Lab assay of single mutants.
Amino acid sequence: TTVKLGDIKVTFDNPEKAKKYAQKLAKIYQLTVHVHGDTIHVK
């Protein structure tokens, strides 16, 4: 599962960890989390 934020891409083996990371980023940057299959976009 890949978390994308602009040019930053972080890949996790564990989808749950990816989701938590995405939510953490979203909170920090006051953005929202969008899940598209294996990719989680923070924008």
Rank of each mutant, 00 (worst) to 15 (best):
L5Q: 03
T1Y: 14
T11S: 09
L31I: 04
K20Q: 11
K43L: 14
H41Q: 06
I40C: 02
K19Y: 15
L31F: 07
L5M: 13
A22N: 00
V35R: 05
E16W: 09
T1D: 02
N14S: 12
T1N: 04
T39S: 06
A22G: 02
V33H: 01
K19R: 12
V3S: 02
V33Q: 01
I28Q: 11
K17H: 11
G6I: 06
K4F: 14
K19S: 08
T11M: 12
T39V: 13
K43I: 15
V42R: 00
K20T: 07
L5P: 02
T32S: 10
Q23R: 08
T1R: 03
L25K: 01
A26F: 04
L5W: 15
K43E: 10
H41L: 11
T32W: 06
A18G: 03
K9W: 13
I28N: 05
K43C: 14
V42S: 01
K17D: 13
A18S: 01
K27N: 10
T39W: 06
F12A: 00
H36D: 14
V42L: 15
K17N: 10
G6V: 04
K19E: 08
K24W: 15
H36N: 11
D7G: 13
K17Y: 10
K4E: 07
G6T: 03
K9F: 12
T11V: 14
T32V: 13
K27D: 13
K43M: 14
P15W: 14
I8G: 03
K43Q: 12
K43R: 13
P15D: 05
K27I: 10
K19I: 15
D38M: 09
Y29L: 10
H36W: 10
N14Q: 06
N14K: 06
V35G: 02
D13P: 08
V10D: 01
K24N: 09
I8V: 10
T2G: 03
H41P: 02
T32G: 06
Q23P: 00
A22L: 06
K9N: 09
A18N: 00
I28L: 13
Q23T: 08
T39G: 03
A18W: 03
D38K: 07
P15A: 11
K24F: 15
K24Q: 10
K20E: 12
K19V: 11
Q30A: 09
K20C: 08
K20M: 10
A18Q: 01
V42Q: 01
F12H: 00
T1H: 07
V35P: 04
D7Y: 15
N14M: 05
A26P: 01
K9G: 06
T39F: 08
G6P: 03
G6Q: 05
H34D: 07
A18H: 00
L25R: 00
F12E: 00
V35W: 10
G6L: 07
Y29Q: 02
D7C: 15
I40K: 01
A22V: 06
N14T: 10
E16A: 10
Y21E: 02
A22S: 02
P15Y: 14
K19G: 05
K19H: 13
T39Y: 07
H36C: 15
G37P: 03
N14W: 05
A26V: 04
G6F: 11
P15F: 15
K17F: 09
K27Q: 13
V42T: 02
A22Q: 01
D38R: 06
V10W: 15
I40S: 02
I40V: 06
T1P: 04
N14D: 14
K24S: 08
V33R: 00
V33L: 12
K27F: 12
N14L: 05
D38W: 07
T39R: 03
D13W: 10
Y29T: 04
L31V: 05
Q30D: 11
H34S: 10
D7R: 15
T32E: 09
K17I: 11
Q30K: 13
K9V: 14
H34Q: 11
K4N: 06
T1F: 13
T2K: 05
F12I: 03
D7N: 15
V10P: 00
K17S: 11
T11K: 11
K27T: 11
A26C: 15
H41F: 13
Y29G: 03
V10R: 08
T32R: 05
K20W: 10
V35L: 08
I28M: 13
Q23Y: 13
A26I: 04
I8S: 07
P15V: 10
V35N: 05
K19W: 15
D13H: 10
Y21G: 00
P15H: 12
K43D: 08
T32N: 07
N14I: 05
V33N: 00
I40Q: 01
V10G: 01
V10A: 04
K43H: 12
K4P: 02
T2L: 06
V42I: 10
D13T: 12
K9E: 14
T1A: 06
E16V: 09
Y29E: 03
V3N: 02
V10C: 14
A22F: 03
L5D: 02
K20D: 08
T2P: 03
Y29R: 02
Y21I: 04
V10F: 13
H41S: 07
H36R: 09
Q23A: 11
K43T: 14
A26W: 04
E16K: 10
G37N: 06
L5E: 02
L25P: 00
I40Y: 07
I28Y: 12
K43N: 08
V3P: 03
D7E: 10
L25I: 09
D38H: 10
Q30E: 08
G37D: 06
P15Q: 08
I28G: 02
V3L: 04
V35E: 08
T11F: 14
H41C: 12
A22M: 04
T11L: 12
P15R: 09
N14P: 01
V42F: 10
I28W: 11
T39I: 13
K24E: 11
Q23D: 12
H34K: 07
V10K: 09
V10N: 02
H34M: 10
Q30R: 11
T32I: 10
K20R: 12
G37E: 06
H41M: 09
A18F: 03
I8L: 13
I40E: 01
K27V: 09
V35D: 08
V33K: 00
V33A: 04
